[in-house]
Amino acid sequence: MLRADNLTKKYGDFTALNGLDLSVNEGDIFCLLGANGAGKSTTINLFLNFIEPTDGQASINAMDVTLHDRETKQLLSYIPENLMLYPHLTGLENLDFFCGLGGKSHTQDQLESLLRESGLQADFIHRRVSSYSKGMRQKVGIALACAREASVLLLDEPTSGLDPKASNEFSELLLTMKKRGVATLMATHDLFRAKDTGTHIGIMKEGVLVEQFASEEVSFRDLEKLYLQHMHN
C-alpha cells in the first residue's frame, strides 16, 4: 500500500530525509520512532505530497503521490499531532464537511454513529469544537478516517499530549482500523504505544531509517535499549 524508495528531502545543505526505503502493507501499523528532527514528520509530509521530494519516490497503491495527488489522497486519511477543526462548527458539522469534500455522502445518523464508535461522548456531538479537548478532536479524526473508508492512515504523533486513557482509546481505534485492513504509518515518540499497537517499528535518526523490524521480534525492554542506543550514538 505505502512504499518509499530512496525517498530524500533536502533543504539547502540540510538533509531532512536521506534515502528512505520502507513499505507498509494492508493491515500493517508501521511506527516510526525517533527524536525531534529525525525525519518522521518529513516522511509523513512527503506521503501527503505537502512537500516535494528532492529524490526518490513516495507511492500509495503503486501510484507516485507527486503525479497522482488527487487519486492517492482519495485513499488516505491524515491525523496530525494536533488535529485542528473549525471551532465555530460542531463535531458533527466538521465531520459532515470533511466527508463531503471527498464526495462521500452520509446521513446524519451514520455520522453520529461513527462519532460514537470513535469514542466521542454523545453529548459532545452537537457541541461546537471550540469546547473539545485534543483527545476529542483526534476521535473526530478517526471518525473521519472511518467515514472516508480510507485504506491508508497517516498519523503524525497522534497521541502526543493525550492522557493515558485517551491514548489507550486511540490505540484501540487503531487496532479496529488494522482489522479492517487499513495500512497505517504513524510517527511517534511513544515507545510503549509503538510496541503495543504497531506491527512494524522503524527507528529514525538524522533523516536515516537506522533500524526496522517486526514489533513481535523484540520485547519492550529490548526496544527501549535499542532506541536509546541509537540515540546515544
Partner: peptide
C-alpha cells in the same frame, strides 16, 4: 495558521 489547511488538502482538495 490553525492547521485546518493541511487537513483540507489531505482530503484531496486543491
Amino acid at each position: 495558521e490553525s492547521g485546518t489547511l493541511k487537513l483540507l488538502i489531505s482530503q484531496g482538495m486543491s
